[in-house]
């Protein structure tokens, strides 16, 4: 039985297989409509979510299965003090696979230690979000036709941005990847990712606070939201929330085939006048999330 807790639980070959499977699902959705008939996914969401929870549930439904679960901790026995371990044990009796989002880092790993069914990390605090990474990789692949030989800028909250952390870990395994880290000092990428991934794997990277300086060099720009829910101090959030705002004017110097990604939801870091720009890929990206999760569910349930 396999779980997906960290993107590195999957080899690059397995990621490539998932991407190919997702592309096949997009091309031939009818061929997959009954693959998970009689199967159920439990979406255990201790934190609010729109895209991730609904895309997991839609993914299972489009495979012919069903979905059950809760969408906030207050709607579950967590509000009575039930542990993650106990919840995982219990839900294993009701569902064939679990997708868990939790505000505490490592909670899905704890669930995977006690569950009798595969557990997917659907986001654990500011730590990891591997299915968003799979979504991002599928989007980059569909937009660029490759996952290597790319210069990718990450902009905004790189400290608490779990999607950034997971995507950097995944991209670091491909050839000729150059990473530009754009953030205010307070929201820089955690030291352990710089040390253990970028430096250890000899990945070319640069840290800057200036988005416009490096924009012309980028093949992909990954924008992120400054996440209010990660701050213990409201004043820090207010000071940093408007650090970067991408507008159509700023894009004048960018490559014509730049791909702009964002894990969404956005607040104001991408102005709405960018939405109509052909380089904006974030809504397509959200759609890709369903297909890659379909491919992942098939893999973890070992459905051919």
């Amino acid at each position: 039985m396999r779980h997906l807790i960290d993107i590195l639980d999957l080899s690059t070959e397995e990621i490539d297989e998932l991407i190919q499977k997702a592309c096949d699902i997009i091309a031939h959705p009818d061929a997959y409509s009954e693959k998970c008939h009689g199967k159920k996914i439990a979406t255990l969401f201790y934190e609010p979510s729109t895209r991730t929870r609904l895309s997991f549930e839609a993914a299972m439904m489009e495979l012919g299965g069903k979905a059950l679960g809760f969408s906030s901790a207050s709607n579950s026995s967590a509000s009575k003090g039930e542990t993650v371990a106990d919840t995982a044990r219990i839900v294993s009796n009701y569902a064939d696979i679990i997708a868990m989002r939790h505000p505490k880092e490592g909670a899905p790993m704890v669930a995977s230690m006690y569950a009798k069914v595969p557990v997917i990390n659907a986001g654990d605090g500011g730590h990891n979000h591997p299915t968003q990474t799979l979504t991002d990789l599928l989007t980059i692949y569909r937009e660029k036709g490759r996952l290597d030989h790319l210069t990718i800028g990450f902009c905004g909250d790189l400290k608490f941005g779990r999607t950034v952390h997971s995507l950097i870990l995944a991209l670091a395994r491909y050839t000729d990847i150059r990473i530009v880290l754009i953030s205010p000092d307070e929201l820089k990428l955690p030291d352990y990712i710089i040390q253990d991934t970028l430096i250890a794997k000899n990945i070319s990277y640069v840290e800057t606070a200036d988005l416009e300086e490096y924009l012309p060099e980028l093949d992909v720009l990954y924008m992120t939201r400054v996440q209010q829910e990660r701050f213990f101090n409201e004043a820090d959030y207010i000071r940093l929330k408007d650090s970067y705002i991408l507008t159509r004017d700023k894009l004048a110097t960018a490559k014509s085939d730049l791909s702009i990604l964002h894990p969404l939801p956005r607040v104001n870091e991408i102005a709405v006048d960018v939405d109509d720009d052909p380089r904006a890929c974030y809504f397509t990206q959200a759609g890709n999330g369903k297909y890659i999760r379909m491919a992942l569910i098939l893999k973890l349930l070992e459905v051919e």
């Binding site: 542990t83 993650v84 371990a85 939790h102 505490k104 880092e105 490592g106 704890v110």
Partner: peptide
Amino acid sequence: RNPRCISTVEPGI
């Protein structure tokens, strides 16, 4: 000691 870590709140971990 990371206050955001599940190990700081999950009993018996």
